[in-house]
Simulated assay, not measured.
Amino acid sequence: MSKRSIIVWGEIPVTDMEKSVAFYNKVFGYDMTIDNSGPNPMAILGGSMDDAGGHLYPGKPAKDGGNTIHLGLTDSLEAGMERCKEAGGEVVSDPIAIPSGRFAYVKDLDGNSIGLFEANA
Rank of each mutant, 00 (worst) to 15 (best):
residue 1 M to Y: 12
residue 2 S to G: 03
residue 5 S to Y: 10
residue 6 I to Y: 13
residue 7 I to K: 00
residue 8 V to G: 14
residue 9 W to F: 10
residue 9 W to D: 11
residue 10 G to K: 12
residue 10 G to R: 06
residue 11 E to R: 11
residue 12 I to A: 04
residue 16 D to K: 03
residue 17 M to R: 02
residue 19 K to W: 02
residue 23 F to R: 05
residue 23 F to H: 09
residue 28 F to S: 04
residue 28 F to A: 08
residue 34 I to L: 04
residue 36 N to A: 07
residue 38 G to L: 01
residue 43 A to V: 04
residue 44 I to H: 00
residue 44 I to D: 06
residue 48 S to R: 10
residue 48 S to Y: 07
residue 49 M to V: 09
residue 50 D to E: 15
residue 54 G to F: 12
residue 54 G to H: 10
residue 55 H to I: 00
residue 56 L to T: 06
residue 56 L to G: 11
residue 59 G to W: 04
residue 60 K to C: 00
residue 60 K to L: 07
residue 61 P to Q: 02
residue 62 A to M: 04
residue 64 D to P: 01
residue 68 T to R: 12
residue 75 D to Q: 14
residue 77 L to S: 11
residue 78 E to A: 10
residue 80 G to M: 03
residue 80 G to T: 00
residue 81 M to Y: 13
residue 82 E to V: 12
residue 83 R to T: 01
residue 84 C to R: 07
residue 86 E to R: 01
residue 89 G to L: 09
residue 91 V to P: 01
residue 91 V to C: 02
residue 93 S to R: 09
residue 97 A to Y: 00
residue 98 I to M: 13
residue 101 G to Q: 09
residue 103 F to G: 03
residue 104 A to W: 03
residue 105 Y to K: 13
residue 108 D to C: 05
residue 111 G to C: 03
residue 111 G to E: 02
residue 117 F to L: 07
residue 120 N to D: 09
residue 120 N to Y: 03
